[in-house]
Amino acid sequence: MKALNQLMLVSAVAALAACKEAPAGDSATSTTGGEFPVESFGKLPDGTEAHLYTLTNAAGMTAKVSDFGATLVSLTAPDKDGHFADVTHGYTSVSGYDNKDNPYFGASVGRFGNRIAHGKFSLDGQEYTLATNNEPGGIPCHLHGGDVGFNRRMWTVKSSELPSSITFEYISKDGEEGYPGTLTSTITYTLTDANELKWEATATTDKPTVINLVHHSYWNLSGDQTTSINDHILTLPADKYLPTDAGLIPTGELAPVAGTPMDFNSPTAIGERVEQDFEALKLGGGYDHCWVLTNPDTNGLALAARVKDPKSGRVLEVSSNQPAVQFYGGNFLDGTLTGKNGDVYGRRTALCLETEGFPDAPNHPEFPSAVLKPGETYHHVMVHKFSAE
């Protein structure tokens, strides 16, 4: 939090205005001096130009992030032999990310990540109606912030520290996508020399609202984004998960994972039990559920997930200050999307590990509260640590 505060206190907004104006191939001024690598990422239909910023660390890793959707576009990580490869799904230009068919590749999702039942919730005695932009099981719900969520908004570069950190800001006006309150959010990406990609979100509001900002990268640690992740070995330190109805909305129950294919407390291949005759898996078309962490740490960081690709040896450990993690196994990728390098993204070619508050929390008073009030600061930290073995 101290590092973020330092970033926010840097009086360099004017200097960073060059980031928004720099043409392809140019660089932008960093708050630490020198030039911050920035390139054009293409234009939106209204002519607005999106940009791509490259973060690097001493180990040779790179992370490319865009001001459109505060999106992680690519991340290179070494395998057990020291060979680097991009381990994320994504597109070559902003047009792919602006498409409504984009399944939130690398996005910073908001205002509310995951689902809200029927696009409705009540707050302080008033009912709010949101877009119903998803219909699992034929039951409409609100998903990932609505028709034009934070993933399809232009963010402003607020500050940066060469060569490893950049902060974006977006101000969501009162009533945007049906949500109450003007919400000011920041997303900071930091690539550390310990091979960690840190995603940190903060937000403040001028009236009570609901919030669940989520990072939504799709990972395939093999480095070949056309291969299945079913052989990736997953560990989730969670004794309970949230069963859902046919619309993938939590029922309110916290069900034990013991004795079910939802138990990943011991390292288990993702594909080992994904086709078992189990109600939760049938409803989700595979894994697409929220696991409740056994030992969360809301004031620090707790391990939320560990995944290993046995062939490349790459390992990803995800830690967070949130109470839960959504594990999605790429069930709805269907081979109709073509991404970077001409790769066709087929079913279960990537997985998502989204640390978060509980889905549909505004409609479940028994869940941890998703309400943010004036004078409070929302804070979500998510650290992705990469290694090889």
Rank of each mutant, 00 (worst) to 15 (best):
L221Y: 03
A70L: 02
G252Q: 12
R273T: 08
F105M: 05
G137N: 00
K373L: 12
T156M: 10
P103G: 09
A14P: 05
S95M: 09
D98N: 07
A12V: 09
T251Q: 15
D277V: 02
K311F: 10
G113K: 14
K120I: 04
L221Q: 11
E177Q: 11
G146M: 00
D147Q: 07
G330E: 13
V315T: 13
F36I: 03
G110N: 01
M262L: 10
D147P: 08
P296I: 04
A361M: 15
T184P: 03
G223W: 13
A3T: 09
P374A: 14
G247W: 00
K198V: 03
G284A: 11
N114Y: 02
F264P: 11
E127Y: 00
V315L: 05
N99M: 09
K43V: 01
D245M: 01
V383G: 14
D360F: 15
M382V: 13
E21K: 15
V383C: 11
D46F: 01
V214Y: 10
T226P: 10
A17S: 09
D277G: 14
M8S: 14
A255S: 14
D67Q: 06
Y91E: 02
P237C: 13
G96Q: 01
V148C: 05
S228H: 06
A107I: 06
P78Q: 05
T182M: 07
D206S: 05
P163L: 00
D79C: 02
L248G: 11
L4P: 08
G357N: 07
A12T: 05
E356P: 01
H89G: 08
D98H: 06
L236M: 11
H142G: 01
Y97Q: 05
E200D: 14
T338V: 15
T71L: 12
Y91I: 12
P296M: 07
K120D: 08
G346Q: 08
G33S: 08
D288P: 07
A194W: 02
P163T: 04
T268F: 15
D263H: 14
N102K: 11
S40D: 05
Y345T: 06
R306P: 10
E275H: 14
E161C: 15
E354L: 12
D245R: 00
L337S: 04
G330H: 06
A58E: 11
V13N: 11
L281E: 07
K240A: 12
L372G: 12
R348Y: 13
S165V: 07
P362C: 09
E35S: 06
K173H: 09
A238G: 14
P140C: 01
E275L: 12
D124H: 01
N295L: 01
L72A: 04
I233Q: 06
L52S: 14
L221N: 08
K173L: 02
E127L: 02
A131C: 03
M8G: 07
K311E: 14
H89I: 11
G375K: 10
D277E: 02
T32G: 05
W199N: 04
Y97H: 05
V325G: 10
V325F: 04
K120R: 05
G252A: 04
T129P: 00
G146V: 04
P140S: 00
A388I: 15
L351D: 15
D309G: 08
T186W: 08
G106L: 06
D309V: 15
D224K: 11
H215G: 13
S27L: 12
D81A: 02
S387V: 05
T54Y: 10
E279Q: 09
K43D: 07
Y378V: 03
